[in-house]
């Protein structure tokens, strides 16, 4: 479903991705772990060309992401993206955040879009917050609205960029709960996170990134219980790097 082939990326003279190869199959959950600066966020941002790459290839299905012929907006509509900082539109209500895409991209009439939006909010447990502006919501609620916003467009893939890192510890559970339910429903997901417990419980595959490469990968019970890479051992001993 998603395939990286020797992906390289530089920020100026600093190489953030140093030849990443890997594949995510349909319906699988891949959790990307790694210390800060290991390139894990950059990696998932390349999938929808939020970050361009300089070398290598990325495929989503049979679409070559970097190709000039690709209608990037159409590709992005197939892939939901959840940001660490939520990035809700602050001038729109929770519902407005969701219906914007439905109206502008799916051309769904307003009343229908609103019904759909309320259903999506109910799915993340926030049906009663439809008319609230993001400023009136807690961090955890905002992130769940952001997830609902992405899900409303019926994506085939969901990408999560440290979705719980900006949250107070007691708010993390609600967001993880939504993500677990999503994984169970068969969604193809790549999750960049520090939540090792989430990886253990939900991931089909774990990628440990270090220095712009996938240093170790495999099933979570193997990678997390019997790590080989010394950096991964240290990483796990510290309980994840923040």
């Amino acid at each position: 479903m998603i395939k990286f082939e020797n992906v390289e990326k530089w920020f100026g003279s600093h190489q953030v991705l140093a030849g990443v190869s890997g594949e995510v199959n349909r319906g699988e959950v891949t959790v990307v772990l790694g210390p800060s600066g290991s390139g894990k966020s950059t990696l998932i941002r390349t999938i929808t060309r939020l970050e361009p790459i300089q070398r290598g290839r990325i495929f989503v299905g049979d679409v070559d992401v970097a190709s000039r012929e690709v209608n990037i907006n159409r590709l992005r509509q197939r892939i939901g993206f959840v940001f660490q900082a939520y990035n809700l539109f602050p001038h729109l209500t929770a519902l407005g955040n969701i219906t914007l895409g439905l109206e502008r991209l799916r051309r769904i009439p307003r009343t229908e879009a609103k019904e759909r939006g309320v259903r999506e909010l109910a799915r993340v447990g926030l049906a009663d917050k439809a008319d609230a502006l993001p400023a009136k919501l807690s961090g955890g609620q905002r992130q769940r609205v952001a997830i609902a916003r992405a899900l409303a467009l019926d994506p085939e893939i969901m990408l999560f960029d440290e979705p719980t890192s900006a949250l107070d510890p007691e708010k993390v559970g609600g967001v993880l709960h939504v993500m677990k339910a999503l994984a169970k429903s068969g969604m193809t997901m790549i999750v960049v996170t520090h939540e090792i417990g989430f990886a253990r419980e939900v991931a089909d595959t774990v990628w440990f990134m270090d220095g712009g490469k996938i240093a170790e990968s495999g099933a979570p019970r193997i990678v997390l219980n019997t790590p080989e890479h010394p950096r991964l051992k240290r990483f796990l001993a510290r309980g994840g790097d923040h």
């Binding site: 929808t48 907006n73 992005r76 940001f83 990035n87 539109f89 001038h91 914007l100 991209l105």
Partner: peptide, 30 residues
């Protein structure tokens, strides 16, 4: 505006005009 605003619009798949007129300008003008 925070960079994340345009990024979120892009990530949804919104093109230049809806991003500008529904996301960027309402906030910037306000």
């Amino acid at each position: 505006l925070p960079k994340g605003q345009v990024e979120a619009a892009k990530a949804l798949g919104l093109g230049y005009f809806p991003t500008t007129f529904r996301v960027v300008l309402p906030q910037a003008l306000y």
